[in-house]
């Protein structure tokens, strides 16, 4: 019995070390830094202060936060709007069709997301594939500005985060008893009513789950706004990155990071309160 327990710890050892060295200690360090002062050369003065946190509540930073949340929210909604029809379409298809289409969703994600984001430049830029095609067919005369703005960031985020919405929703929809859909039809429900009255309430946990998995990373994905926003659009992820790399104000960067973590925790709490299960998120 005791030997068994020891063996379990032995197996867990790498994970414990990993979590401790690479997650917990850096996190404590970030927390510690967030209460320190910054000197003008980018160094730290180890004196306690709350000013970093107070700075976050400046109008400029609040606007960035609000904008980040708005962009993330729009990306989340678009993801949900794409995921539901797709999952419902797969509902009564054969096992082969299902697994084929789900693989199609997954395959792009075996490639590095940074490279894929660069790929979007080819499609979205002024003389890119989409604009050339639209001008070539005479649909538009002037190229659309599809990137280096909020739209570009949203397109990039939807593209990158879509599987995190599709998978939980698909899983919830496919776990759903299909006879419920049939019963609803049998009782005279239109397609929209079947969705609203039966499918949505049955799969709401998948929607919450997916929303969380999309919204939280979307707030912080700085490389998408760097590449597709062209550095013109500041979201909270860029703000943090800039504090560490460009502005060299580590304490302020740390404070925003901690603030973001707190918001994430709040969202998870909210999710639990609405009735989401932590199991759906992989446990907590």
């Amino acid at each position: 019995m005791k030997k068994n327990k020891l063996f379990q710890y032995f197996l867990l050892f790498p994970v414990i070390i990993y979590s401790f060295l690479l997650i917990l200690i850096p996190l404590i360090y970030v927390l510690f830094l967030s209460f320190c002062k910054n000197d003008s050369y980018g160094g730290m003065i180890y004196e306690f202060t709350l000013s970093n946190y107070l700075t976050i509540f400046d109008f400029t930073y609040m606007m960035i936060l609000l904008k980040s949340a708005l962009i993330a929210l729009i990306a989340t909604l678009i993801c949900a709007f794409i995921s539901y029809p797709f999952s419902i379409f797969l509902m009564d298809k054969s096992e082969r069709t299902r697994s084929f289409l789900i693989k199609l969703v997954m395959i792009p994600f075996l490639t590095n997301s940074l490279i894929r984001t660069y790929g979007w430049i080819v499609l979205l830029r002024k003389n890119g594939v989409i604009n050339s095609a639209l001008i070539g067919t005479g649909i538009i005369s002037k190229p659309l500005s599809l990137m280096y703005n909020n739209l570009g960031i949203i397109i990039g985020m939807v593209y990158t985060l879509l599987p995190f919405m599709i998978l939980p929703i698909y899983s919830a929809v496919s776990k759903m008893d299909y006879s419920l859909v049939e019963a609803a039809k049998d009782l005279g429900a239109s397609k929209w009513k079947v969705f609203k009255e039966v499918i949505l309430p049955s799969t709401i946990s998948g929607l919450f789950n997916g929303s969380l998995m999309v919204f939280i990373p979307a707030i912080g994905y700085f490389f998408i706004s760097d590449i597709l926003g062209g550095g013109k659009v500041m979201i909270i992820g860029n703000l943090i990155k800039n504090q560490f790399l460009t502005a060299r104000n580590w304490p302020f960067g740390s404070a925003i990071s901690i603030f973001l973590i707190l918001i994430t925790f709040l969202l998870v709490k909210l999710y639990k309160k609405i009735g989401g299960k932590m199991d759906d998120l992989g446990g907590f």
Partner: peptide, 20 residues
Amino acid sequence: VEPTDRPVNTIFQNFALFPF
């Protein structure tokens, strides 16, 4: 005619009651 518009109703094998 779609099942929605047929004047019949089905009792399903697993009852298919809406659990929520």
